[in-house]
Design a protein around this nucleic acid. Structure first.
Length: 953
RNA sequence: GCCCCGGUAGCCCAAUUGGCAGAGGCAACGGCCUCAAAAUCCGUCAAGUGUCGGUUCGAGUCCGACCCGGGGCACCA
């Protein structure tokens, strides 16, 4: 952009004290320094190293405002990133002015793949690039004027931080889940129960008779963090395993988009499934959007049902079903091709077909098998099982529509009531006995006569309907009114006959917690000569990430699913082998060479903000209680946690689920008083931006595109197509905040981002719109400061009544809107007030002072400057926010619109305290109304007090 | 296919939750200033609320069906 067309470039004759980008730059940098020098935004703690109890008392009610933990990216910020940060800053500043002690800071989630991949490419140690990226991001954020308590900023990569991440891991490792008490407990208590005999061992032998190894096996099986040989997601392209939550629905890694394969491997797992019920049930206590809650419920996937045992030549086959009441209709069984009983069930005649099918299924990725549109396939094993409810002999098949990873990996097929089973039965000519009589309407819809001959049915009937052919000697469902009753009766029968029982099944799997990478937290684990895992004692933490030049895991051809992970730490034998005394005398141990996933550091970071320098504990108890303790005055079952958590919706089932899980473990073990980390969650929208593709479908630099909607867009004279997408490098449509600072200053950028729409809505970025907010600040400035001399020009004369009323109405609305995070409407009201004052000859001080206070949260730099200009010392940050005088909010006269049959036909002025009869009389006396009535007699007159009059004729 | 959001002037967005469709900003147009222009300033214009139907004295708002856009889930037994 050339200087001639830059709207903010001040020409030579511009007044010296006009609010310009240069002036904004000057005062913004000055105030940012001032805030830092004076520790303006340091929040006092009630106890611990940052204790300042007097100040805590003086500040008022506590409030913890939190942004989602940012990753310090190497490419820097674009204007889409700070949307939420500006929102939390405005809110924090507002709350400080309304009597709150606000906890507000920001740290960096700095472990992870991008820094490591960059290190591999450039040979620079990830610690160096990470530090540089953090420094750059701190600079960009500081330039925005965010009111962070900088003493509390942390990085997950700092050994003083990950020391406590490792400590928490040790706590989880040394804990087990007591299903009866529904709580995690220290593992020592489990050992004590076994030792004392209050809990019997799995095989019943006394604890004292077990070998050390047998005892350890029993204990290790119960830990909340455990090593297991289980199917995991192996990603050769990344050279590491990844969690279920990190695999996209098309079977690729969410980072890097590489294929992911199911492989059995020995890996660390976290027993998050123990918390499945509490993670669902406690959603009730949270002030989160229904969208996020339903995503979490969906991911955990709790379904109530029953397991049913079918006898077979290979032993009992257990299935999970949500409809045990349909057991009479189970006419065959289907096992997943991977089911362990398949070999034994397969008859010699069927062996070849089964082998072929299993080889084929095994060669497919999960997502290929889950393609719903594809036709059902399967092979008969040759064996039959026995349906326990009616003794029928049912054929056992295998098919890839049954997944080993859900339920028991085997189903009872009820083709008349399940569409998948119906398709399968139809294709393979298996019997489809009817066990419900569908309603007449259902047959009418299919345009067939009602019949129980299922060969006439086009598909399965799913729903509530009377049972038929559903009885044996001891159970009769025929005539039972509802599915719920049928289920209950069948469950009772199953239990009475040892054929199954009611149960709950979850989609959620345990969390795969180890990664074969370099740039992450090392595990605080060593293995003894028998290969048994031990936690290191707390005094040996942190286990620092060893120095090396070779940060890369061995990666493989992305499709090479038979490759094996090789962690970078494996290669560091000096580090791996370690001599320690863990109570058995000095011995040689081998360190665990995995690192933790990136999510580990973000599972508890908000608590470290509270007490960042504490060397005794991850957070002081009293400090945690103060900032995050349950607020029963808000609601009796308040779970505690952060008061306002702002971030994007993309972490719905990753970070938010993992962090809740860790927090609950810490709660159970008595380390924190809050049972949830984030009491209120607000999902901010995204800033989208136009992106342009040329005819080769390649994105072109958006800033260099010319043209508009109606005439079409061109790039270098060639036509290009517009689309909307998330702002970013890949779409070549990023706008850097630095550009905005140069052109307008940070206050204008802040104001624009807050004014362009509600915080939770996604909206397109329009650089050309930013100038509106800049003009507003310019007008505001001009109303208070002489553009020639820089002198304050507000008048000490009182405001006229009308202006005063407008001021108080504005105060009233702005207070409410800011409290509700509706900054866009608050800004509109402030502009309206300023526009009204602009029309006056002078700005009265009576308006100027409250106006500056109201603007202080939004545009803090210019507000501080004007506050000084108005003759005040110090900062405006803790000045009390204006309160409206209720007497000035009511008008003496009210204008009522008068409707006749729904159309506005006139207006009347009535005293505000007039009763309904008086309003009605005034309406009927109005000339225009009478003219419209034209002699007609009103049938009805409706007076809505304070609103309108409606006449029906 | 299922579950969430959202659809209001050319554009971004308001509308006290059933009460006069407009608060604010951009753009456009006109004017002041200027030799001229930019910037600033002053003023003006603009949609009947995605579609169809219903409830009501009165519907952007409530109900029903559908269309479009964004997000999430999906052979989960």
């Amino acid at each position: 952009m050339s200087d001639e067309t830059n709207p903010t470039t001040i020409s030579n004759d511009a007044p010296p004290h006009r609010y310009s980008a240069d002036l904004a730059l000057d005062l913004e940098l000055r105030w940012q320094d001032w805030w830092d020098d004076n520790g303006t935004f340091e929040a006092p703690n009630p106890a611990g190293p940052l204790a300042d109890p007097d100040s805590v008392a003086a500040r008022g009610e506590k409030l913890f405002v939190l942004d989602m933990f940012p990753y310090p990216s190497g490419v820097g910020l674009h204007v889409g990133h700070p949307l939420g940060f500006i929102g939390t800053d405005v809110y924090s500043r507002f709350k400080r002015m309304t009597g709150h002690n606000v906890m507000y800071t920001m740290g960096f989630d700095a472990f992870g793949l991008p820094a490591e991949q960059y290190a591999v490419q450039t040979g620079t140690h990830p610690a160096i690039t990470t530090d540089a990226n953090i420094a750059n991001m701190r600079r960009q954020l500081r330039r925005l004027g965010l009111s962070h308590d900088n003493r509390r900023s942390i990085s997950t990569t700092d050994p003083e931080y990950y020391r406590w991440t490792q400590w928490i891991f040790s706590q989880i490792f040394n804990a087990w889940y007591d299903e009866e008490q529904q709580t995690a407990r220290p593992i020592d208590e489990l050992i004590a129960e076994f030792a004392s005999g209050t809990r019997s061992t799995p095989d019943g032998r006394p604890w004292a008779e077990l070998t050390a190894g047998e005892r350890a096996d029993i204990i290790d099986d119960r830990r909340l963090a455990y090593v297991s040989e289980a199917p995991v997601n192996w990603c050769p392209g990344l050279g590491t395993v990844v969690a279920n939550e990190e695999v996209t629905s098309d079977g690729r890694s969410d980072r890097g988009n590489y294929p992911v394969f199911k492989r059995n491997m020995r890996q660390w797992m976290m027993r998050i499934t123990a918390y499945a019920d509490r993670l669902i049930d406690d959603l009730e206590l949270l002030d989160w959007t229904d969208a996020i809650k339903s995503m979490q419920r969906n991911w955990i996937g709790r379904s109530h049902g029953a397991i049913v045992h079918f006898a077979s030549p290979a032993g009992v086959i257990t299935v999970f079903t949500t409809r045990p009441d349909t057991l009479f209709g189970a006419s065959f069984m289907v096992l997943s091709p991977e089911h362990p009983l398949v070999d034994e069930l397969t008859t010699p005649e069927q062996a070849a077909a089964i082998d072929e099918y299993r080889a084929e299924a095994g060669g497919k990725k999960d997502f290929e098998r889950q393609d719903e549109s594809k036709e059902k396939t399967g092979v008969f094993t040759g064996s039959f099982a026995t349906n326990p409810i009616n003794g029928e002999r049912v054929p056992v098949w295998i098919a890839d529509y049954v997944l080993m990873g859900y339920g028991t990996g085997a189903i009872m097929a009820v083709p008349c009531g399940d569409e998948r089973d119906f398709e399968f039965a139809t294709k393979f000519k298996l019997p489809i006995p009817a066990i419900q009589r569908p309603p007449r309407a259902w047959f009418d819809e299919q345009a067939i006569e009602p019949t129980l001959d299922t060969s006439q049915w086009p598909f399965a009937y799913v729903g509530n309907a009377p049972y038929v052919q559903s009885s044996n000697d001891t159970l009769d469902l025929n005539g039972v009114a509802s599915v719920a009753d049928g289920v209950a009766m069948t469950n009772a029968w199953l239990e009475a006959n040892d054929a199954g029982e009611a149960t709950i099944n979850y989609k959620l799997r345990d969390w795969l917690f180890s990664r074969q990478r370099y740039w992450g937290e090392p595990f605080p684990i060593v293995y003894d000569a028998e290969g048994r895992a031990h936690t290191l004692p707390d005094e040996l933490l942190p286990v620092e990430l060893p120095e090396t030049d070779s940060f890369s895991p061995r990666t493989f051809d992305a499709e090479d699913k038979f490759s094996n992970p090789e962690s970078p730490l494996d290669r560091l034998s000096d580090w791996v082998d370690v001599e320690l005394d863990l109570g058995e005398g000095i011995q040689t141990y081998r360190r665990d060479t995995n690192v933790m996933p990136q999510w580990a550091g973000s599972c508890w970071y908000e608590m470290r903000y509270l007490d960042p320098t504490n060397t005794e504990r991850f957070v002081d108890r009293e400090v945690e209680q103060y900032w995050m303790g349950p607020r029963t005055e808000v609601r009796p079952d308040h779970p505690g946690g952060v008061d306002l958590y702002v971030g994007g919706v993309e972490h719905a089932v990753l970070h938010l689920l993992y962090a809740r899980f860790w927090h609950k473990v810490l709660f159970d073990l008595g380390h924190v008083s809050s049972k949830e980390p984030y009491a209120r969650l607000f999902n901010q929208g995204y800033i989208q931006a136009a992106a342009f593709k040329d005819e080769r479908e390649i994105y072109v630099e958006a800033t260099e595109v010319e043209g508009d909607d109606t005439d079409g867009f061109t790039f270098n004279g060639e036509p290009v197509a517009r689309e909307w997408g998330k702002m970013g490098k890949s779409l070549k449509n990023a706008v850097s905040p630095d550009e905005m600072y140069d052109q307008y200053g940070a206050d204008t950028l802040r104001l624009y981002e807050m004014a362009m729409g509600p915080l939770d809505a996604s909206r397109p970025w329009e650089t050309s719109d930013v100038i509106g907010m800049y003009r507003f600040l310019q007008r505001l400035w001009r109303n208070m400061v002489d553009e020639e001399t820089g002198a304050c020009i507000v008048s000490k004369d009182p405001a006229d009544d009308e202006t005063r009323k407008l001021l108080h109405k504005t105060i009233d609305i702005v207070r409410t809107e800011m409290d509700e995070l509706r900054f866009n409407t608050a800004i509109a009201k402030l502009i309206e007030l300023n526009n009204a004052v602009t029309k006056l000859d002078v700005m009265p001080r009576e308006v100027a002072e409250p106006m500056v206070k109201m603007l202080a949260p939004l545009v803090p730099h210019v507000a501080e400057e004007l506050w000084r200009s108005l003759g005040h010392d110090g900062t405006i940050a803790y000045v009390e926010f204006p309160e409206a005088d209720p007497a000035l909010l009511v008008d003496e006269m009210i204008e009522y619109p008068v409707q006749i049959n729904g159309k506005v036909r006139g207006h009347i002025q009535v005293a505000a305290d007039a009763d309904q009869q008086a309003v009605e009389s005034a309406a009927l006396a109005d000339d225009k109304v009478n003219a419209s009535l034209d002699g007609a007699v009103p049938k009805k007159v409706i007076v809505v007090p304070g609103r309108m009059v409606s006449i029906v004729i």
